[in-house]
Amino acid sequence: MPPAATTVLAQEEWLPVAEEHRREVEALTAGHRERALAGRPHPVEDFLFTYYRYRPGQLARWHPGDGVVLLGDAARERLAWRGYAPWSGGGREGVVVDVAALTATQGRRLAHVRDVVAATRGRPAELGCFGLHEWAMVHGSATDPSVLRHERQPLRLGAAGTDAVVEEGARRGWLRCTHVDAVRFYPPSALALSPLQPTRETQPALEQPGCLHAGMDLYRAAFLLVPLAPSSLVLEAFRLARDVRELDMRASPYDLSSYGRAPVRVETAQGRARYASAQRALAVRGQELRDRLLPLLDALVDPTVVPAG
């Protein structure tokens, strides 16, 4: 029995939408693709493609989401893609997302992601970290230069000045990073200053919507749901992640003036206020995305759940 469908689209209806999506993504990723060919990395704009490993070509593939049948010769190519199944009805043949097939291939990872997203959605945003996770990652760089993740970029305040910001932040209770994938890059000297030691197991208990990295990870969550998640949702998550990375690096200890990025000086009271304001706006966008992701995650973790249309 073919998967259920709520909307049937003829090729002349959906193909222009797919082409428009492809053009939009190609415009957004043109700089990255040009730099990749030239071997010129960018510490801000290329991060999403190196950290999450999703290629621009994958992002450019348009998916309508659950319950939408695509008709036509171009649609049949999708039977070679993950998560699509043949559909027939009323004498017509097409393809549709197969939720059961996706469930079989994702397993425990999806359940963990769903737990993290749901728990984070239910918490208020904490806005008192001021982006010090990036500073903590390079604590002690004077004696251990290997901790510099962007070794081509100088530190704005130098090694000693950077360490002083981290240590003052620890004294004032600002060094409270809740995100495992940030803290795991802390050198031992910074870990000793951190009151929280998040792990993958404690992630559902600690993740909170004010965390920039939690918002950025919604891009990964959305991509895990492809093709159940419509490309409009994935692209929105990409845009959020891109904006998060921009703030993350501008508030970091690195001097990015050669890339045209003015710093958000979180070592000052004015800079901290500016950071918290931007962080709050990003947290609101992240919560809106979680509202859209949760029904899809529920449908994969428990296939008896019907995603909201």
Rank of each mutant, 00 (worst) to 15 (best):
D98M: 03
R33P: 07
A18G: 09
L294C: 09
E20I: 06
L28V: 06
P56L: 00
A111C: 06
P263G: 10
A229P: 10
P204T: 04
Y54C: 01
G271H: 08
C129I: 06
V266R: 11
G94T: 14
A299T: 10
V138D: 01
R114N: 08
G89D: 06
R53W: 04
H42W: 05
F47R: 03
L59M: 14
A125F: 01
E126I: 11
H42V: 06
V264S: 04
V234N: 01
T199P: 00
A241I: 00
G215E: 02
L300P: 00
Y52T: 02
G72Y: 06
D291H: 05
T103A: 15
V68C: 07
L70F: 09
G286A: 12
T304W: 03
F223E: 11
R200F: 04
D291P: 00
P41S: 07
V301F: 04
D298W: 05
L196M: 03
R78G: 08
Q106T: 12
Y186G: 10
P86D: 11
E93H: 13
L155R: 11
Q106A: 08
V68F: 10
V113H: 06
L37R: 15
W135K: 02
G89L: 08
R109S: 10
F130Q: 01
A80R: 15
R280D: 10
H150Q: 08
R292S: 08
Y259D: 08
A85S: 14
L247E: 13
A27W: 02
F130Y: 15
L300W: 03
T6V: 12
A125V: 07
A125I: 02
L59R: 10
G94S: 11
L235P: 02
Q287C: 15
L240Q: 13
P263M: 07
R200Y: 00
P64W: 01
G128I: 04
L296Q: 02
D115W: 01
L127V: 07
S231T: 09
G31M: 09
M1N: 06
A85D: 06
A299K: 06
V68G: 00
A159C: 07
A100G: 12
L9G: 04
Q58R: 12
V97A: 15
S146K: 13
F49I: 10
A241Q: 01
P187E: 13
